[in-house]
Design a protein around this nucleic acid. Structure first.
Lengths: 179, 179
DNA sequence: ACCTGAACACCGTTCAAGT
DNA sequence: ACCTGAACACCGTTCAAGT
């Protein structure tokens, strides 16, 4: 039975979870599937496109429409934290194919109180914050994992608090200034 | 006359400006200096350390203490925009050696109205926003440069406006909620 | 249609050996 | 002390050839 595109994405997602983004090479994905590297290119045009699908999968667990912006921010963070380097992967895809990340396009709609232009800006502001914050958290995790830096207990709960503070402040400011 | 560490950093900064981060390899920096790749490792322990020095140089044009947080945000953005992929480079260095970026450590001091813990969080929030926003701007520039995507005039001034809106909203929210 | 084998043009880093 | 030459262990991608 031959390989499918979905299987390639699955394998890439699995390698990401095991090795992190730095360890997620096309060659390793191929090895995971028991196939030669070149075989992947029959199913996927490039590594960037493969990562795009992985990012979409990451966001599938993510923010839904119909909630308030604060909830959406927490949901987005939770989705990113589910896999190693999740924030980095989504940031990368946002850089070169932002239109592929449909879940993020619903966010402006959550700022119902603002005029459309402002709602767009507001959503971008919030997304930048969440991606930056979680990327920092996960980069820290990677450093801890490679024992370059020592783990400190209590970081998780302090992170939680700091994140909530930022979200609250940003949403507050956006709704006040956006009107 | 032999190479100096400063010359290697200069060359790396120059290559970054000409080729962007993706094109900034140790081998290209070596070529720029008319030297073999291995020679660089006599002056610099790794590519990561070299990029750390480049990031410090980028931030040297950056935010000063003694201004208000909004001014600092605009100064930081201006510094990042001076070189290609400046935000990406600083983000990368922040990931693996944040203590090296001294200029960013002064930012909590600008939130004088907040208790110290909150001022820390506030600074992080603002920095995440600025780095994320500028990284998006510069990634766009890279795509335009490679003609993957068309340039749209008016983007610069709209970017300016959007950035200011985000900064104003964040600083407003932070000072209101932080007290 | 789908995959292999093998190559191309790169990487960062190390290290003996030269001067 | 400083650099070269050459290698090691990787990359992403392409493509003829096989089945």
């Amino acid at each position: 039975m031959s390989l499918s595109r979905a299987q390639v994405v699955d394998a890439a997602y699995a390698v990401l979870g095991e090795q992190g983004l730095a360890g997620t090479s096309m060659r390793r994905v191929a090895t995971e599937l028991g196939v030669q590297p070149g075989a992947l290119y029959y199913h996927v045009p490039s590594k960037q496109d493969l990562l795009t699908e992985v990012a979409v999968r990451i966001l599938a667990a993510g923010p839904v429409s119909g909630v308030d912006p604060r909830q959406a921010a927490h949901d987005l963070r939770a989705a990113l934290l589910r896999v190693r380097d999740g924030a980095e992967v989504v940031s990368f895809v946002r850089a070169f194919r932002p239109e592929a990340l449909e879940p993020l396009h619903a966010l402006p709609g959550l700022f119902g109180g603002l005029p459309p232009g402002r709602a767009q800006w507001a959503a971008r502001t919030l997304v930048h914050y969440v991606l930056g914050f979680v990327a920092e958290e996960q980069n820290r995790d990677e450093l801890v994992r490679s024992t370059i830096v020592a783990d400190e207990p209590m970081r998780a709960t302090e992170s939680e608090e700091a994140f909530r503070f930022g979200v609250d402040a940003i949403v507050e400011g956006l709704t006040v200034l956006g009107a």
